[in-house]
Design a protein around this nucleic acid. Structure first.
Lengths: 144, 144
DNA sequence: TCGCCTGATGATAGTGATTCTCACTCTCGT
DNA sequence: ACGAGAGTGAGAATCACTATCATCAGGCGA
């Protein structure tokens, strides 16, 4: 049952939004994925819910949370840290961080990252780094 | 009434925990400051409440939140980002980041920081950085 | 010494975001 | 058509936190 007939859990026009394998692409999830794909900035579960429900009036808020959680598992969205909570951003694959505009909520990805190296943290603190969160807050080019 | 007779808003033996000037050091706040000073790791408002109430049984949870907020204003505590939420850590003055142990909750400060420079973000993205959040997650020396 | 003013407090209701529960529905493979 | 199990919506529950408000406390001036 793994990767046979039912095959495509997502379709390519969702532009990189991936559900975990062997989950079904239901109309409800489609509505949520559409709502995310249309976003150019950070979003909250509630705001997604409001948009997605226009397309699928019966949609429940619980389904939005469930779908976002699935996307989080695949790395397609990430919850923002800091004062922007509670909000999420779309994520392309690979290590990167976010530039969050405090004025309009727009989020830009950047591959720039100078987080302390695991080796140095290990040497200086005996600390085994497994991951890190870095978000930069400020004003985007449009709002400046 | 500004910085005269009433004088000392805090006392030095709270090891760097500062309340804003012209706030009173009440027994309730003292109990909360004690509870924080005794911590070697991250803490939540509720866990502080439980500890501080042993010293001051009448203490209300609202007072704990109010006191933590005062300390946040002076930079003496900072809310953690990422999955460790909702939790706070004590902060020494100055720019630094935190190494958070996912096993025991211990938090170590480090001055190591390689966040992208505001100048480079400005040049490449037109983004005016105002601040950033960086927390590193992993396992501390004791738990490893 | 006595009120007074204002900051501080505790109890409690309220809020917003999120999670849980559960009966029901839909889909897929057979 | 059928059975199994993934998926669903509604609403209750939970969690962290905030707002409200009557009351308290402790310097201050009179």
């Amino acid at each position: 049952m793994a990767g046979k007939g039912r095959a495509l859990p997502t379709e390519t026009d969702y532009r990189g939004l991936l559900l975990p394998a062997s989950t079904r692409l239901t109309p409800q999830r489609r509505a949520v994925l559409d709502a995310i794909a249309a976003r150019r900035s950070s979003f909250t579960a509630v705001s997604l819910f409001q948009v997605a429900r226009r397309r699928n009036p019966g949609l429940g808020i619980a389904t939005v949370y469930r779908t976002v959680e699935l996307l989080r598992q695949t790395g397609s969205v990430r919850p923002l840290t800091g004062d922007a909570r509670p909000a999420y951003v779309r994520c392309e694959p690979g290590h990167h961080h976010h530039l969050v505009c405090l004025a309009c909520g727009a989020v830009e990805e950047t591959e720039l990252c100078g987080a302390p190296s695991p080796a140095e943290l290990r040497r200086r603190y005996g600390f085994r780094a497994e991951g890190h969160e870095l978000d930069v807050y400020g004003t985007c080019a449009r709002c400046a």
